[in-house]
Simulated scan of single mutants.
Amino acid sequence: MKNDLSALSNFAPNRRQLLGLGLVAVGAAALNVVPGFELLASAQAAVPPAAQKIADHFSSVKSMSGEFVQFGPKGEQTGGKFFLERPGKIRFNYDGSSNFKVISDGKSVVILNKKMNTSDLYPLSKTPLKLLLDDRIDLSGDRVKSVKEEDDLTTIKLSDKSVFGNAMITMMFDPKTYDLRQWTITDAQGKDTTVMIFNTKEGVSFAPDTFAIDYTANRELNTKTR
């Protein structure tokens, strides 16, 4: 299923997994049975002030770098370094011999696997990354599906059909500092992939080519492999 753009949500270094996942379909009934979650009943429901403050704070972080650990649906674990710059730019450099990378330049997202000699390109606007990388995280309308406020964690679950169908992204923040701790994407089979970030630095500067995508190389590679 090479055209399944929801696969980008998992950032998995396994190209077959990346390209083979479906979109999640979660209804109100399913959310109601999740312990501790308060379902926002309608598009007009008020967004909890704590959630909006957290979203505004994260939106104000214009650049960030750090390390990440990713946990796949079967417990598989990978990690590496990430670099983020608003609007729309992010880069994940995975550890390991595959030299696997995921890069967004603000318009497109490319999945690079040097070991497998593959380069797959997708529009950023059709991936869950868009919600994380917008200039402002928009909680208006019916995007907010649930909010869970605890002493040590605030969890916000979002979806936007216009961006990536029925896919869900769950973001978890420190309620005191408003810092993003992790996010989870759920696929059509209810399987989660979680990315945790740590050792982060804000307000960092990057080399001009950090988020560059070589569209010519991508086109040539995919022409040869057809």
Rank of each mutant, 00 (worst) to 15 (best):
L153K: 13
S162Q: 13
L40N: 01
F92S: 00
K62D: 10
K53C: 03
G79I: 08
F100Q: 07
G165T: 08
M172N: 15
K201T: 01
T78W: 12
T177M: 15
T155E: 10
I197E: 02
F211R: 09
A167K: 05
N117I: 04
L19T: 09
G72S: 08
P175V: 09
V47W: 05
K2A: 15
K201C: 01
A46D: 02
A55I: 09
P128R: 05
V204L: 07
L153V: 14
P35L: 02
M196A: 12
K201F: 06
D174Q: 11
K145Q: 07
P49Q: 04
N14V: 12
V61N: 05
F206V: 01
K130I: 01
N222V: 10
F58S: 02
I156E: 03
S97T: 07
T193Y: 10
R15V: 15
F164L: 10
W183I: 02
K161A: 06
T154E: 03
R15T: 12
Y178M: 11
V163I: 15
K191P: 02
D209N: 15
V204E: 03
V204P: 02
D120F: 13
P123A: 11
L158H: 11
K2F: 14
S108W: 12
G20F: 06
A28M: 10
L121Y: 09
Y94D: 07
L139A: 08
L112I: 07
D152K: 13
N93G: 05
S104H: 13
S59F: 14
N199C: 03
T200V: 03
S9C: 10
L23F: 13
K53H: 06
F68I: 09
S97G: 03
I90T: 06
G36Q: 08
R226L: 12
I137E: 02
L133H: 01
K130D: 03
A50M: 09
M1F: 07
L112E: 02
L121Q: 04
P128N: 05
L84E: 11
S108D: 13
P48A: 03
F164T: 07
S6K: 00
F37N: 01
G96P: 12
A12V: 01
K53M: 09
Y178W: 05
H57D: 07
T210S: 04
K161P: 00
D214N: 15
F100K: 06
Q182T: 11
K126Q: 14
P48Q: 02
D179V: 07
Q182E: 14
L112T: 00
P48K: 04
A12P: 00
N14W: 10
M196D: 07
I169M: 11
K62G: 11
M171L: 14
N32F: 03
N166S: 14
T210P: 04
L139E: 05
E76A: 09
G141Y: 08
N113S: 13
R86A: 06
L84V: 12
T216I: 06
Y178V: 01
L8R: 02
M196K: 13
T216A: 15
K201E: 11
G36D: 05
E149Y: 03
E220A: 10
M1A: 09
Q77L: 14
F83S: 06
S162M: 09
A12C: 08
S60D: 12
S146E: 00
M64E: 14
D214M: 14
A43F: 10
L21E: 10
L221C: 02
T177L: 15
P128K: 08
L133N: 00
A12Q: 03
N113G: 06
L84F: 15
D214S: 15
A12W: 03
P128S: 06
I169F: 13
N10H: 09
S146V: 00
